[in-house]
Design a protein around this nucleic acid. Structure first.
Lengths: 186, 186
DNA sequence: GAGGAAGCGGATAGAGAATCCGGATGTGTG
DNA sequence: CACACATCCGGATTCTCTATCCGCTTCCTC
């Protein structure tokens, strides 16, 4: 992987900046649109990111990385239930703050290998935290590993359905997750 | 509102049949596509249903009607918690069995006045059932009327994220709703 | 069975996504 | 510095799908 040429790197940054803006304002990512707003040719954008999905995943990568890092720290927490609940809280808050994350979280097929890897790390961490909480008798028995992602996405989705403005989302998400966690305790 | 001409009624039925098939197999409703499959001209489809949303809402209407009817019966149940929980169960099961319903449930703006009216009936019933359950001290205090729809949609969404095949959805949805209801009890 | 209203169908205009390649720009070398 | 090569840029163009419009057909009424 040779380093990018100077102009290419500059354009890559511009594209990502514009894409982040679009995602944040809820506009669907259209590559022609991104090109126009970034003041670049369409071809340039399509070369860097062959599909909107690839761009979306790249936009979401930093957040995904942050979550994965936090996961590693959560594994050092001594209280299994607290570690578990805290991790889920982070996941939900990240998703309702970042539409890009919410979209890629619900998708099974990834475009970029890197995304798959990060998601896998996060899922592994979540599974481990769940296993510990279960071992400590803190969560319901019938909660499966495979339920973690759907439940988190469900809470995030419910929050999006409820809240008009991004600012409302965090408290709403907290309330919903709180309810879920109550239901999850043994 | 004069009755439809014979050929128009026949085509209306064909369109609705095809649309139901498409919805059930998860294909997004595209009016050109519907026309092709129904063996009709594009214009015919567009005249009956100016937008995919209008068609989708029409497809979902019978289910919506059924739910509204069940709601009326639920109001006669003497056990407030049971009535409430049972109604939510029906809502969730309907949504995970019918993608059309799931889509229009999460949408605030309706195309057809009839849809708005039915949805309003259902929401009113839900609100009433919640009020009774709350009055009986059966549910958490901080659960608001406006949380009902988001939570139901959240459970349905979680179910869709979890399950690959439609057959898996009902049991999954039940488990998730069960967890939610636990969290909701006072 | 003639007249008129209602409905049909698909050619075509329009919008948006994706490609492709001639030209421009950056990078390594003498 | 100047040259040659590789890399990258840009947007005209093509491709794909959506939606409209209007001449023709079918149905209903008297």
């Amino acid at each position: 992987m040779t380093p990018l040429r100077k102009d290419a790197a500059r354009n890559w940054d511009r594209i990502l900046t514009v894409a982040r803006e679009l995602v944040d304002e809820g506009t669907p990512l259209q590559l022609n649109d991104v090109a126009r707003r970034a003041g670049l040719g369409v071809g340039t954008v399509y070369r860097h990111f062959p599909t909107p999905e690839a761009l979306l995943e790249t936009v979401a990568t930093p957040c995904l990385q942050t979550i994965a890092d936090h996961g590693r720290k959560a594994l050092e927490d001594d209280d299994p239930w607290h570690a578990f609940a805290d991790f889920l809280t982070r996941l939900v808050e990240a998703q309702v703050s970042d539409p890009a994350l919410a979209k890629i979280a619900a998708t099974a097929e990834d475009t970029l290998p890197h995304t798959t890897e990060l998601k896998q790390q996060i899922i592994t961490t979540g599974t481990e935290l769940l296993a510990r909480a279960r071992a400590a008798g803190a969560v319901r028995e019938d909660l499966d590993d495979g339920d973690l992602v759907p439940l988190i996405c469900g809470v995030a989705y419910a929050t999006y359905v409820h809240s008009d403005t991004p600012a409302d989302r965090i408290p709403t998400a907290r309330r919903y997750l709180d309810t879920l966690l109550r239901g999850l305790r043994a």
